[in-house]
Design a protein around this nucleic acid. Sequence first.
DNA 1: CGATTGCTTGATACCTCTCAACCCAGGTGG
DNA 2: CCACCTGGGTTGAGAGGTATCAAGCAATCG
Lengths: 233, 233
Amino acid sequence: MSMHLANSTITAAPPAFAHDPRKDAAINGRIDRDDALASTGHLVQFAQDCEIYGEGDKAAVFFKVVEGVVRTCKFLSDGRRQIDAFHVAGDVFGFEAGAEHRLSAEAVCNCWLTSHRRRGLEELAATDLALSQQLFSYAMRGMARAQDHSLLLGRRSAIEKVAAFLVEWARHAAGCPTITLAMTRQDIADYLGLTIETVSRTLSQLERDAVIEIPTARHIRLKNLAALHSLKS
Amino acid sequence: MSMHLANSTITAAPPAFAHDPRKDAAINGRIDRDDALASTGHLVQFAQDCEIYGEGDKAAVFFKVVEGVVRTCKFLSDGRRQIDAFHVAGDVFGFEAGAEHRLSAEAVCNCWLTSHRRRGLEELAATDLALSQQLFSYAMRGMARAQDHSLLLGRRSAIEKVAAFLVEWARHAAGCPTITLAMTRQDIADYLGLTIETVSRTLSQLERDAVIEIPTARHIRLKNLAALHSLKS
DNA sequence: CGATTGCTTGATACCTCTCAACCCAGGTGG
DNA sequence: CCACCTGGGTTGAGAGGTATCAAGCAATCG
């Protein structure tokens, strides 16, 4: 519930000559040149598993991922966790309609983010048409993503869910047939509404069926992408 | 996939003296006086089970519910259907980021809607700050709703899902302990990611436990709202 | 009336969860 | 170097919840 910005931020304001992941990202084309947010905001770093904000925290700032992976999730009273989304480079998260964050956000791995003051931006958006349109597009994209996720969770078998997850992540590793998973099996399970054992068993099943290969737990080689797509059904 | 506006619209432009549900709604306070959409748009009616638009249709217009209930859903190749949301009076649906509708929309019961030209409105929003903020708020509300739905579908038991559904609909029948369901058991099942039989069994179970009463299939009396809330967990 | 539709109930099968043991890689310390 | 520990992952056996298949009921409508 509490905002752990202070103790989880390793480098809130990196020294002038420190490595700035924004430059790498811009060079690699992961951030649009004309992105209204790209050059604003404070660069902050979060170590693996640090809480970025908690459910119910005041939503004074929101974030954009520069490097790394962030999960947004909710916790139920009995300890169950539902992961709403994984956010990768270029994704905006923590942008709320109300005064408070409706979900928690945590760093899946070591992350570089830019943080943006919500208040200032809303005022700016009132005059800047391009900016307000961009914020609107973030909201619409977030809605589409959440709807797709609902579709994934309702009435689908474990194998369909896992296949859909792999195909979704194949897009992030565009071209490369081997995807690198930043998250644990538990994260995947909580994202798909399954248990860790079922995720593990389903991946093994897919490997037996020669659809994928699992050189290490965190690296998965997609041998038969067509089969994965048809499994998504 | 096709737009059935022409043949599913019973009264596209009702005669001057026809009953106008917008007036009732305004009198009953279901529509805000200062709603930027309330007075614009064409009033249209859809009979029960008519398709309002299909997945993939050009998203030239979007809608606001004046009276009745609308479901938005997706169909899978094998016939499974996932209902994303039920929309009631005051809700906006069919507003898209892209050029096409990502879901289908159908009338759950006889419905009165106002339809709004998207193109004109986007241009208007560029100059009208209040309007653009309202559109933004629709998008954010839609995202929050979709996220809540994801949470409902992932890793929850049948009884938790049904209880959550009943509590959600109790809000629409504010005050009255008996809720009227506009939708069939199949609709509820497709919304909760269950089968029709499980929904039926779970409702019977809740009645045996004296949590609810089912005078008729479409009327459910909530005898113990506190129990329902705790079942949601 | 009979036919249809929406709903309920029963019996059984199957999928996923639960609980448990085990494996493996990495780190620590003697 | 090896013993030990730890955390993440895999695998197995059994239980349990939900789907499936099937039958029956009630209300509605020609």
